[in-house]
């Protein structure tokens, strides 16, 4: 065996080969992105500038911005505002429940920690739709809550078909998405910094506020985004638990593609929401949050 003589070209060739290999490895992902993201996105984008005929057909014969103009309708504003609030409250409640819980998990022995994490994941083993229908029973007048209040001689108490029911359903569904990033952030925390704070006479609360909280900020932001984004456009939970009373964005968009037969409006709304989410992600990047 002879060592190859030093040749600058050899290194370059190796680099080029490496790049080619990289490209080939990434090819399935590129194809996936084009087929399942870029093309559908393009269709939605074009449709948002199409025209709705009187019978509801989508006509591509002229460029029309009427769908975007329609977004200024007070009705849309009300729906967006309501969805925004439901998503915000869901995120806040999730954070409130998940932080102490994630903190608890992260500070256990590794064996206990893994067991608790599995418990967080267990609900994912059954279908989301089935679990949401289970809530329908729990919150209905025949459910435990209704039976209890009825046994106490009062009108059966029913949460089903109220905004509170939507909120419960959303918090239930998205809580794990908050717990996991928070756990990851807290688990990575360098506890020596907290000890140092305590050594320097910070009380427990101050140490938490000035050291733990800022250092786990990435987890808070990641978790909040993972909860906020899907609850903002949630469709299934409000449809099943909300009784279709308080219209939210997800249902409104579905209506546009179904009964209303106004695909341009549904598409325009989807585009705007995507743009808003993109801005949210950019803010997340700017704030330096690390991986989930």
């Amino acid at each position: 065996m002879r060592k190859p003589a030093f040749e600058p070209g050899l290194e370059k060739a190796a680099e080029a080969a490496e790049r080619r290999r990289g490209f080939l490895l990434g090819l399935p992902a590129y194809v996936y992105l084009v087929v399942f993201f870029a093309v559908p996105f393009f269709i939605v984008f074009v449709t948002s500038f199409a025209r709705r005929s009187a019978t509801g057909a989508t006509k591509y014969d002229e460029f029309s911005t009427s769908a975007y103009v329609k977004l200024l309708d007070p009705l849309v504003g009300t729906i967006v505002w309501r969805s925004f609030w439901i998503a915000t409250i869901t995120t806040a409640v999730c954070l409130l429940f998940a932080y102490p819980f994630a903190y608890y998990i992260a500070t256990r022995r590794p064996a206990v920690r893994n067991a608790l994490l599995v418990l967080v994941m267990i609900p994912f083993w059954s279908n989301f739709l089935v679990r949401t229908y289970a809530w329908r029973f729990i919150l209905g007048s025949d459910g435990p809550l209704g039976t209890l209040t009825e046994a106490m001689g009062r009108e059966p108490f029913r949460l089903l078909f109220t905004p509170a029911a939507i909120l419960i359903g959303l918090v239930y569904g998205f809580l794990p998405f908050m717990v996991l990033p928070l756990y990851a952030a807290i688990e990575r925390l360098d506890w020596r910094l907290v000890e140092a704070a305590r050594d320097l006479y910070a009380d427990g609360w101050t140490a938490f506020r000035k050291v733990t909280l800022p250092l786990t900020r990435s987890g808070i932001i990641a978790g909040s985004l993972l909860v906020f984004v899907p609850s903002f456009g949630a469709y299934v939970t409000p449809a099943i638990l909300g009784g279709g009373k308080d219209l939210l964005l997800g249902s409104y968009i579905v209506t546009q593609f179904g009964q209303a037969r106004n695909r341009p409006l549904g598409s325009a709304l989807s585009i705007v929401i995507m743009a808003v989410m993109l801005v949210a992600l950019m803010i997340r990047n700017r704030s330096g949050a690390e991986e989930i």
């Binding site: 709705r52 009187a54 019978t55 509801g56 309708d73 009705l75 009300t78 279709g244 009373k245 308080d246 219209l247 409104y252 209506t255 009964q259 209303a260 106004n262």
Partner: peptide, 19 residues
């Protein structure tokens, strides 16, 4: 009947009534 141009207004009136 076929609702024609009034179709969207009927849709919206219903959605607005839901608040």
């Amino acid at each position: 009947p076929q609702t024609g141009e009034l179709g969207l207004e009927l849709q919206d009136a219903f959605l607005r009534s839901k608040g």
